[in-house]
Amino acid sequence: MTPNEINWPAALRAADSAEQSAAMQTLREVLQNGLRIALHGRGDVSEAHLEDFAQESLLRVLDRLDQFAGRSKFTTWAQAIALNTAFTELRRKRWHDVSLDALLANGDHLADPAMIADDVLGADEDRVRLVTVLRQAIEQDLTTKQRAAILGELREMPFDQIVELLGTSRSAAYKMLHDARRALKQRLQEAGITGADIQNAFNL
């Protein structure tokens, strides 16, 4: 039987512990094979890491089994969870020594007008005006934490790391960032700069 022919939710919930164990073992192998493909060529990932990621992913899949709605193949849904597990851990390792003070210092830096050069997008009048409005909005409309989170994201700091450092929940941090983006967008709109203007004028 191929992985796509298995009724995974039923097999993983099987009352027969031998059947359940076999399904778990097969799924662990499927996830590990997927991770091997996705993370191929990364110097920071060994076979032992793949085994750990697959095991951790299996536990997360079992924990969320009730959330599988059958709108995709089960293995695709499970692979997405495995990739999230692996990438979250790899990002965390890369940024593990960043402190809250360093993150908040980022927020203060971003409020400094010198952080964004007038001509960073180009020297013509429209682009300089966009940058000026953006810079004012960042300085005046955002909190230190919002600026810190935005700069952290621009520097590829993992979102989970930002959440952890700010001592908040994922949903609260996401709302904080969403509110920040909406505030900046509103300031641009008030200055007569629309999304279509940005796209047309700057080809972004």
Partner: peptide
């Protein structure tokens, strides 16, 4: 630590 063109472009794209 100035933001690069790409980073400012990312902010503007996010806002769009």
């Amino acid at each position: 630590q100035r933001l690069s063109r790409e980073q400012v472009g990312s902010i503007v794209t996010m806002l769009r």
